[in-house]
Design a protein around this nucleic acid. Sequence first.
DNA 1: GCATTACCCTGAAAGC
DNA 2: TGCTTTCAGGGTAATG
Length: 273
Amino acid sequence: MPEGPEVETVRRTLAPLLEGQTITDAWVSRFSLRTKTTRKAFAPLLGQRVVAVERHGKLLWFRTAADSGAMIRLGMTGQVSVVEPRVPRAKHTHVRLSLDGGRELRYVDARRFGDVLPFPNLAALTAERERLGPDPLTFTPEDVDLVTTTLGKTQRRIKDALLDQAVVAGVGNIYVCEALFYAGVDPRRRANSVSQSRRRKAVEAVREVLLDGVRNGGTTLRDYLDADGNRGDHQNHLAVFQREGEACPQCGGSIAREVWGGRSTFFCRRCQR
DNA sequence: GCATTACCCTGAAAGC
DNA sequence: TGCTTTCAGGGTAATG
C-alpha cells in the first residue's frame, strides 16, 4: 500500500532507469485501470526523451523534453519496473512502454486501483498537482503553519483530515497511525478540538515518520516493491500499525484497533489523548 | 459546503 | 480438502 515514502522510493529507483530514455512504443491492456486509457493517448510521448521523474504526495510522473509525459498512481497494488522485453510478462500487466535502450517500462496492478495517465502537455499535470496539499517530505515552515491552521478549521476526525490529500499529500493509513502515536494525539478526536500546539506536533510527526519511511526504503506489508524489485524495511520499524494487542512501546499497554470507514486505526488509548 | 458512505478490484486468509 | 466469505484500502463519486 504505497504512501509518500514508498512512492518516493519508487521515484528514486525509477529515475536512473528512465531518465534519458526515448519512448518508442506503447502498449495498453484491454482491462481498464481506475481511469480508462488507450494506446492512442500515448502518441504525444512517442519519440520523446524522458528528462525527469518527479513526485508530489502519492502522485508520480515523468516528463519528456516536449513536456508530454504520464502520471502514475500506484493505488493499492501498483508496481513499476524497467526490464528486458524477454522477461515474462507478469499477470496483471496493464501498460508497457518500449524504450530506445532496449528495455521497457511496465506497470503491473492486480487490483487496478491505480492509474497510468498520459498527458500531452503540462496543463493536465498542473491541474492534478493543484488539487494536492503540501508534501511533508518537502515541508517548508509555511507549509507546517498552513496544515496546522487547516486542521483547526475542520471538525472531521484528525486522522481523516490528515488522510485527505488536499490537506496534506502523501499520507496513508500506515503513516498517519504512526504519526498520531508519536504526537500523542487520539486519532478519533475532532481536528478542531485539538490545541494548536498539539496539531502542530502532529503535523511535524507526519513529516518525521515519512522521512523515516524513506530512510527505510518504504513499508512492505504485502505487495509493495520499488522499481528495482526490492522490498522496503520500514514494516520492521512500526510502533502501532498492525500491532493490535501488542505492547505499546511507550507505556507497555495494549495497542488498540478500531475500524471506521472500512479502515483500521491502530493507537494506544493511554498515550494518545 | 461539509462529512460520511459506497464502490472499484484481486487474492490471501479465515470460516465452514 | 475444497468451497465460500471476509478483509485489505487509495481515491473518487454519490449520498446524507
